[in-house]
């Protein structure tokens, strides 16, 4: 038996499940309804509605990626020092990730709704109810909540790999705690940080679920436009063209990750 033959099903699956579908996406995006070549589906990104959706998505994704990083990096640094029950504590941070994504997003809807939990508490305290749901803030909240583990995981893997002797050496040489964090730990965890940024930015940029559930159909992201073209709008060529534009940003992220991080596989290992 030839061991190489064991890779045959995988090769078939990669070709049938990844390469052909992506080629079709390109084909649809670069043709019109009759099948002749056109760039109009791509250039359609210039239309005000589409452009606004793309820019909103880029902005919201960038803000939530930044918030995720600002939350996750200190967690990883603090977890490094935990001595007792370390496994359990990391488990606690990652557990919500395993719960269904839709349920997690729905939970925020329940919290933020007009008659929801937070507003009930606010009015019970005697304050005026706030408009929380259907705002960009609600969408960012959902993105941060849903994708925080994707930032935490690679950063924590990178930070925990830094040998204790490395940071101890820095302390011995007179570095302050802040200096150790910013001049030793931070630079050494760059590969993990880059992975984390990509793994939060890409799903946030392309989501249509979070904006739909927490934006109440008022906040249109590029993902919403594409989803609608493929479902209700029924213009697949346009949807594919806009997907290609979106994929350019995904591709940039992938190149970014490839430049800084040689071992993506390890970062995703849980």
């Amino acid at each position: 038996m030839n061991k190489k033959a064991l890779s045959a099903p995988y090769v078939i699956w990669i070709i049938g499940g990844t390469l052909i579908p992506l080629a079709l996406m390109l084909y649809y995006g670069l043709t019109d309804g009759e099948g002749s070549f056109t760039l109009s589906n791509i250039l359609a990104i210039g239309e005000p509605g589409h452009l606004k959706a793309l820019l909103t998505a880029l902005l919201l994704a960038a803000v939530s990626t930044l918030i995720c990083f600002l939350l996750a990096f200190p967690i990883a640094v603090l977890l490094r020092r935990v001595k007792r029950a370390k496994g359990l504590i990391i488990f606690l941070f990652l557990l919500p990730m395993w719960m269904n994504f839709l349920l997690r997003t729905m939970a925020w809807q329940v919290l933020l709704e007009k008659g929801g939990v937070i507003n009930s508490i606010i009015s019970w305290l005697g304050f005026e109810k706030l408009r929380l749901i259907n705002t960009p803030g609600a969408v960012i909240m959902g993105m941060v909540y849903d994708f925080l583990p994707f930032m935490l995981l690679p950063i924590n893997n990178a930070v925990s790999k830094i040998a204790l002797s490395t940071t101890e050496a820095a302390y011995d040489l007179g570095a302050s705690e802040m200096q150790v964090v910013f001049k030793v730990v931070l630079p050494l965890s760059v590969p993990g940080i880059v992975s984390g940024i990509t793994m939060v930015f890409v799903p946030a940029l392309t989501t249509f679920v979070i904006s739909n559930m927490l934006g109440g159909g008022k906040i249109y992201l590029i993902g919403n436009i594409i989803e609608q073209e493929f479902t209700v709008g029924d213009n697949w060529n346009l949807g594919a063209g806009l997907s290609i534009v979106m994929m350019v940003f995904i591709l940039i992220s992938m190149l970014f990750i490839a430049k800084f991080d040689k071992d993506v596989e390890e970062d995703l290992a849980i």
């Binding site: 049938g16 499940g17 990844t18 052909i20 579908p21 992506l22 079709l24 996406m25 649809y28 990509t198 793994m199 890409v202 799903p203 940029l205 392309t206 989501t207 249509f208 993902g223 594409i226 989803e227 493929f230 697949w236 949807g239 594919a240 997907s243 979106m246 994929m247 995904i250 992220s253 992938m254 990750i257 993506v264 995703l268």
Partner: peptide, 16 residues
């Protein structure tokens, strides 16, 4: 498939 957006994975499979 790991790094690609789910929406692209889903839509391209549907097209196929």
């Amino acid at each position: 498939p790991l790094l690609n957006a789910d929406i692209v994975t889903g839509l391209s499979l549907m097209l196929a």
